[in-house]
């Protein structure tokens, strides 16, 4: 199916959800509202003409100061049978960075959403196990946000301080070289 047909089909089903349709480098993406995201995804997944079975990617983007809303959650979909692709981008404002989870549709979305939570602080409502995944569990802040510095704060992370302390402690057992 051509991408404009997919767009039309989705526009028919959810006329009020779709805000914008963008096209770049032969790829089409749709900006949608976040409220009914699960219904939109379910439609894309279950509709026999669309059949988007494969969730290629799910990630967050921080558009601080460049767009009226701050975050986007990007769903990259592909249909293995029909061989067509579409990208769905859900808008999230800064003061309400939450969205419903799509784990009931794709099990593989689970870790993607955890990573997104870890890196951007976006909360996925209804996720079975929303914990940090790549960063340590007691980490402060969300590294991929634009206001997070590339080089960390002056003070080391607690876990690393512990390592340094232990290294100091064990230094007394080092073998001394006799002159």
């Amino acid at each position: 199916m051509r991408s404009n047909e997919i767009v039309n089909k989705l526009k028919e089903a959810f006329p009020e959800e779709i805000i914008e349709v963008c096209s770049f480098a032969n790829q089409t993406s749709m900006v949608v509202k976040k409220q009914r995201i699960v219904e939109v995804m379910r439609f894309l997944h279950d509709n026999p003409g669309l059949n988007f079975g494969h969730l290629q990617d799910l990630c967050g983007v921080d558009y601080k100061d460049t767009k009226p809303y701050r975050f986007e959650v990007v769903y990259q979909l592909f249909s293995i049978e029909k061989e067509h692709a579409i990208r769905i981008r859900a808008m999230l404002p800064e003061d309400d960075a939450t969205i419903d989870t799509v784990t009931p549709i794709w099990d593989g979305a689970s870790w993607h959403e955890r990573e997104c939570y870890d890196m951007f602080g976006i909360v996925f409502k209804g996720h079975p196990d929303l914990r940090r995944i790549l960063m340590p569990e007691d980490w402060q802040g969300h590294p991929l946000r634009k206001d997070y510095p590339l080089k960390g704060p002056k003070e080391y992370w607690k876990g690393f301080q512990e390592v340094l302390r232990k290294a100091d402690e064990y230094r007394q057992y080092e073998t001394k070289v006799l002159d």
Binding site: Q56, V74, Q76
Partner: peptide, 17 residues
């Protein structure tokens, strides 16, 4: 703009967005 591009790495689909 924004785009997603994938290649078949030996482990599976390696995608760049």
């Amino acid at each position: 703009g924004e785009l997603y591009s994938a290649v078949e790495a030996p482990k599976g689909e390696l995608g760049f967005y």
